[in-house]
Design a protein around this nucleic acid. Structure first.
Lengths: 320, 320
DNA sequence: TGAAGTTGGTAAAAGCTTTTCTCAGTCAAC
DNA sequence: GTTGACTGAGAAAAGCTTTTACCAACTTCA
């Protein structure tokens, strides 16, 4: 304890926190000695008093981390400067496990909780609506009167289709995931708005093989073929690119392909690398982090859903 | 506070913890009322006294999460039953950031730290050797006299090559990552032990395109071609499979391909899905978690490097 | 010279648990 | 009827900080 090396406990505390009245010389001396002996205040004791643990919990059901990791990076990035650490709790759609984790976080007096997931239109399997700590939802369905951050899939889809139109593509098909996903419907809506109804929307699953199969279907039909594919995610896009190559169709010369998600490991390794839409999940995490911090500090935050714009990442699968 | 609903503070505490002397009837009543009002003890106050925060820190420089996520899952899985929560701190090879995170964890009185990374033969850019909390290394280079968990890459490689031999392959080539990786050398050593020196080892980088190029190189050489490829990771394997298909060579009929890592997103989406070696990172995380807990509780743990066996995951890229 | 204000610092309380110590009451035994 | 053992429960301390209240010494002013 720093007091051993100088003055009383209270004087030491005031010296280190730049509060209270005392001689400048005393203050300096205490600070110096604290530095020398490497004194660091115990955050537990501090938290006990201040009711702030400088700790938040991140709850996710995205075991694979595809969405959670960027969100986590953004949160951590935003909060590390404020001395806030993050408990990561992966619950795998298991309500009991989720409750266990929430209870553990609450016991540890987290200042707030951020709930995130792998799907915009699904809830986590645990009720967070009546906790006495603030809760912010990021990339998962929130409750009434909560603060929710999500990507603007409509704008993202428009970005993609408008890009294809801009580089001269006219017969743009949309190959995407299961229709019961909210974001699938939203993207498809934006697609129709921009591209019209000339080409079909093919609903399927989120896999490469579906992308592959979809190309087979499209090219087996009679009549003119698409000159561009707007895919629901990068995996579908990759499957599509592979299928096109196998058919001897050149990407991007003959057909432009655009993905969604900007999942580096897929998008960058595809040949050619995929032009795709990035949902800016890190930024989403950053804002969620700052928001939960604001709520924890009692600053007012307007409830509601905040849509964050997507960004087009241009690589080589579109040409133009 | 439960005491409001019955007896004194100390009696309440003793009742809930099943300690001290008191009437069975009183104990029951306190427990019941505590349950009714949803009382949960404040872990901060408890930690202040017991010197145990039931919190550990996980430090990683693996931004992408390829290795960290399974390790994290294992740790969490092992420790959630003990009421321990995990701070995840992603430091991106940034020493200052790493120190910030370590300081924050120490302030929060973590019971221990697990260091993990993306490479067995590299250290994290921060010195953890003289902390007053236990440190366990998992999938990253540890310090003298520390406890380190790692995969047994030699055994994993042997598993792969022996499998290829068992299904009748005789000309097994090894396409792998950069030779300065320790695990690359270790796997190559095991490969030579089992397969001899008839076929070459091709060192390159950890990417699909290298797998692709390596096949080009191998098949451009004069003389007999390999009938099996043991690849250094799943991405290389995938690139190789794609290249073979483009050359009209059938996998697994003509050539067997085996990967390493069992990275689902790559291994399972390859056509055909990859047979590969799983490093059991989740199990590794689990053991690291239990070990750091043991150390935190003062139980003795033998220092040293613990190699965990790998497991062969058979899919369809080898036939046999 | 006495009153009022200023300065530099300490003592103590509060925050929530757990643990140890103490105390009043009960019962059995001599 | 007094002593000793035992029982059930509460008081208090400890764990580490921060904050408030307080005190002694010194300065300023009338």
């Amino acid at each position: 304890m720093a007091s051993a090396a100088g003055v009383s406990i209270s004087t030491a505390s005031k010296a280190l926190n730049d509060t209270g009245r005392m001689g400048a010389e005393t203050r300096e001396r205490v600070k110096r000695i604290a530095g020398e002996i490497g004194y660091r205040p115990n955050a537990l004791a501090r938290g006990l008093l201040s009711k702030r643990s400088f700790t938040i919990g991140l709850l996710t059901n995205d075991t694979y981390g595809r969405f959670t990791l960027p969100v986590m990076a953004g949160i951590s990035d935003a909060l590390v400067d404020h001395g806030v650490s993050v408990f990561l709790c992966a619950i795998e759609d298991d309500p009991a496990l989720a409750q266990t984790h929430v209870d553990a976080m609450l016991d540890k007096q987290v200042d707030g909780i951020i709930a995130t997931g792998k799907r915009l239109d699904r809830r986590l399997p645990v009720d967070l609506s009546n906790l006495h700590v603030p809760v912010v939802y990021a990339f998962t369905e929130g409750t009434q009167n909560s603060v929710t951050f999500r990507s603007d899939d409509e704008q993202g889809a428009r970005l993609a289709v408008e890009w294809l139109a801009k580089i001269g593509r006219r017969r743009i098909a949309h190959v995407t995931g299961p229709e019961d996903f909210f974001s699938v419907r939203e993207r498809a809506g934006a697609y129709h708005q921009v591209a019209g109804h000339r080409e079909p929307v093919l609903y399927g699953v989120w896999s490469e093989s579906w992308g592959h199969d979809a190309v087979e279907q499209l090219w087996k039909r009679p009549g003119e073929k698409p000159d561009a594919l707007f895919c629901g995610n990068d995996q579908i896009a990759r499957g599509a690119v592979d299928a096109l190559r196998e058919r001897g169709i050149k990407v991007p010369q003959d057909v432009s392909v655009i993905g969604f998600d900007n999942w580096e490991i897929v998008a960058a390794q595809t040949r050619p690398p995929l032009t795709t839409v990035d949902m800016e999940l890190k930024e989403l995490g950053r804002q969620a982090g700052l928001t939960v911090l604001a709520l924890a500090e009692g600053r007012p935050v307007e409830p509601g859903v905040r849509k964050l714009p997507c960004r087009l990442v241009v690589r080589q699968s579109c040409g133009g």
